[in-house]
C-alpha cells in the first residue's frame, strides 16, 4: 500500500548512528524530538516485517539533541532485521509508550540493578537523574555482554559487575551484590530491569527492605493498551488481576505484582 500515513504518537525516526556494541548486540541512535521526550523505562514499538511490532526500551534519551538510543540483542527475525538497518534509514515507531520509572527520591539511597539487555534502560535512568548518583550493579552471562559499563562510569558512577561465568567482575548473579547493598543502605530504592527470574529474585530480596521499581517484558500485540495481550498477574484490591505491561507498565512496583 502506498505511503504510510503517520499520526500523533507515531513517528518516522531516522537512524543517525548504528553501532555493534557486542556480539549480537546493536545500538541504534535515532533522531526524533518526539521520542526524546520519553521517560526512562518507556519503550518504542517498532515496525518490522513481522505481523507484530517489536518493543524495545530506550537506552539513551537526549532531549537537547532530540536523540534516543535503542540497544537490543539479536534473538530472532525481528531483531535481526533491525540490526541490519543502516544509518540514514528510517523506522516507523509508536512511542514513547508505557509508564516509565518514577523519579528517585534524592534524599534516599538509590541503586540500579540490571541484567543483560535490561541494563540499557537503567542507563537512561542514571543519566536522567544523575545528580541522585545511584550505585550500579550490572550482570550478564559473560564479559562481552556486560553492556554500557563505560557509559555508567562516564557519569562518574561506581559500577559493580557480575558474570555468570566469572569472566568479568564477580562470578555469580547481581543478587549477591544487591544483598550487600541492601544491608548497607536503610530505606533504599532499587530500580531494576532484566530477565523475569532475575526480577523475581530482586523483588524477593527487596521485600520489606527497599522500595523496588521493576521494568518487565511480556509478549505484546498492540503496545498501546487495546488488545490485552501483554498482561502480568498483579494484586488487585480483593483478588488477583491482570495488568498490562504496555500501559500500566513496563515499570511496576515490585510489591504490586504476583511473582
Amino acid at each position: 500500500m502506498a505511503g504510510q500515513q503517520f499520526h500523533d504518537g507515531q513517528v518516522d525516526a531516522r537512524i543517525v548512528r548504528r553501532e555493534e556494541v557486542a556480539r549480537d548486540h546493536v545500538e541504534l541512535i535515532l533522531e526524533s524530538p518526539a521520542l526524546a521526550r520519553a521517560v526512562p523505562g518507556q519503550f518504542a514499538h517498532i515496525l518490522t516485517p513481522g505481523m507484530l511490532r517489536r518493543p524495545v526500551s530506550f537506552s539513551r534519551i537526549e532531549p537537547d539533541s532530540g536523540r534516543v538510543g535503542l540497544l537490543f540483542q539479536v534473538v530472532g527475525e525481528g531483531t535481526a532485521w533491525l540490526a541490519n538497518c543502516q544509518e540514514g534509514e528510517r523506522l516507523d515507531i509508536l512511542g514513547p509508550l508505557g509508564h516509565g520509572f518514577a523519579p528517585p527520591d534524592p534524599s534516599r539511597p538509590w541503586c540500579l540493578v540490571g541484567g543483560g539487555v535490561g541494563i540499557p534502560p537503567l542507563y537512561s535512568a542514571a543519566a536522567q537523574w544523575r545528580e541522585s548518583a545511584p550505585d550500579v550493579i550490572i550482570g550478564a552471562r559473560t564479559r562481552e555482554w556486560v553492556l554500557m559499563q563505560k557509559d555508567f562510569e562516564q557519569l562518574g558512577l561506581g559500577v559493580r559487575v557480575t558474570t555468570d561465568d566469572g569472566s568479568w567482575g564477580q562470578a555469580g548473579t547481581v543478587i549477591g551484590p544487591l544483598q550487600e547493598w541492601l544491608e548497607g543502605h536503610a530505606d533504599g530504592q532499587v530500580f531494576s530491569c532484566g530477565p523475569t527470574p532475575m526480577l523475581a529474585a530482586v523483588a524477593s530480596a527487596c521485600r520489606g527492605r527497599a522500595a523496588a521499581q521493576v521494568a518487565l517484558e511480556q509478549r505484546m500485540g498492540c503496545g498501546i493498551g487495546a488488545c490485552l495481550a501483554c498482561v502480568v498477574p498483579a494484586r488487585g484490591q480483593t483478588q488477583m488481576e491482570y495488568r498490562r505491561v504496555c500501559t500500566e507498565g513496563p515499570v511496576f512496583l515490585a510489591e504490586e505484582l504476583i511473582w
Binding site: 505481523m51 488488545c227 495481550a229 501483554c230 498482561v231 491482570y242
Partner: peptide, 23 residues
C-alpha cells in the same frame, strides 16, 4: 472476566495466534 494466563499472543507466518480469553 479475568482472561487467560500469559503469554497471550504468538506470531505465525502471516498470522497471529491469540488466547486473550475475553478479559
Amino acid at each position: 472476566w479475568l482472561g487467560n494466563p500469559p503469554p497471550r499472543v504468538w506470531e505465525t507466518p502471516m498470522g497471529l495466534l491469540n488466547s486473550i480469553g475475553l478479559q
